[in-house]
């Protein structure tokens, strides 16, 4: 029983991290159909920028703010300079964003070197809660809390605000949205920046949990994609459920079937897609 409870908790907390990473990506997909291989780089760079802030004795909260804002600007610049012109050209998007991913990877190596680092976290978030014989690391609880908070904010913003309604309208039908006077250009840029920001936030949060290190970008990228395709592009609910599924499958797969651990993660994904090519909550 203990085994199942702690694995469940581990899976959910990993899923929470994935939700931060993939939530914004799902919106970007849904609205602009942009395949962004740079998403993993936002995650990586977010962690590195935050690391620099803590090295200069900045507090953890400041590290989060600076890390996410810096990456938001990078995202906006990249979108404005290249990606907005490539709508509908998947091949062009894949190759252009892959080019950026390689450039960011190398720049990170130049700027921060190749040593692995752990982002120092405040004492408040270290240690663990004990319930009976079970241990729940505080930091993992923190990740879940952040993810729930972000999910709530996003849901409220999308469903209950005017901008949210405009975003939903643009996801559903960009031409109609433009027709009724919505500034699709500004909305798209804002959503792209939001996606980059959330990926960077995931990178900062992960920095205190799995560390910041070269190669993290391409390691996490397939997970982000898988979450989005399983949940369905453009669906917040889909991203949430997709993240939890991937987190749990990954965790239980590794614990129960170590030899087939990635197979148990990716094969069910492929099976879902075979039945529903647009994902669980996606619309074609």
């Amino acid at each position: 029983m203990d085994f199942w409870i702690s694995q469940l908790f581990n899976g959910v907390s990993y899923g929470a991290l994935l939700f931060l990473l993939a939530g914004g990506l799902s919106l970007i997909f849904g609205m602009m159909r942009i395949v962004n291989m740079t998403h993993g780089s936002y995650y990586l760079l977010g962690g590195y920028v935050a690391l620099t802030v803590t090295w200069r004795n900045g507090p953890f909260l400041l590290a989060i703010v600076v890390g996410t804002l810096a990456i938001a600007f990078i995202g906006i610049a990249e979108w404005n300079a290249f990606l907005k012109r490539l709508s509908g050209q998947e091949l062009g998007q894949v190759l252009t964003t892959m080019g950026f991913a390689l450039i960011f990877q190398d720049l990170a190596l130049v700027l921060w070197g190749g040593d692995p680092y752990m982002l120092p976290v405040p004492a408040l978030l270290s240690g663990s809660y004990t319930v009976g014989r079970l241990y729940f690391p505080v930091y993992r609880v923190f990740i879940i809390v952040v993810a729930v908070f972000i999910a709530l904010v996003l849901w409220l913003a999308l469903e209950r605000t005017r901008i949210g309604a405009m975003i939903r309208a643009t996801v559903d039908d960009p031409e109609m949205a433009r027709g009724i006077g919505i500034n699709v250009y500004a909305i798209s840029m804002a959503v792209f920046a939001l996606g980059a920001t959330l990926a960077a936030l995931a990178g900062v949060v992960a920095g205190g949990f799995v560390g910041v290190y070269p190669g993290a970008d391409f390691e996490i990228l397939p997970y982000a994609f898988v979450v989005v395709i399983v949940g369905g592009m453009g669906s917040l609910k889909g991203a949430l459920i997709g993240s939890l599924m991937v987190g749990l499958l990954d965790n239980f797969g590794k614990a129960l079937f170590p030899e087939l651990s990635y197979f148990t993660l990716f094969a069910p994904m492929a099976a879902i897609l075979a039945v529903r090519p647009t994902g669980l909550f996606g619309r074609a």
């Binding site: 994609f225 395709i229 094969a267």
Partner: peptide
């Protein structure tokens, strides 16, 4: 059979997942 049910971005994503299945087996089996 799986991938050709989709086109465009969806095809891209499904082939990615299928590629990862094979990579996962090579990596962990």
């Amino acid at each position: 059979l799986v991938a050709l049910r989709a086109t465009g971005v969806y095809f891209l994503m499904i082939t990615l997942a299928l590629g990862m299945v094979v990579w996962g087996l090579a990596h962990r089996w």
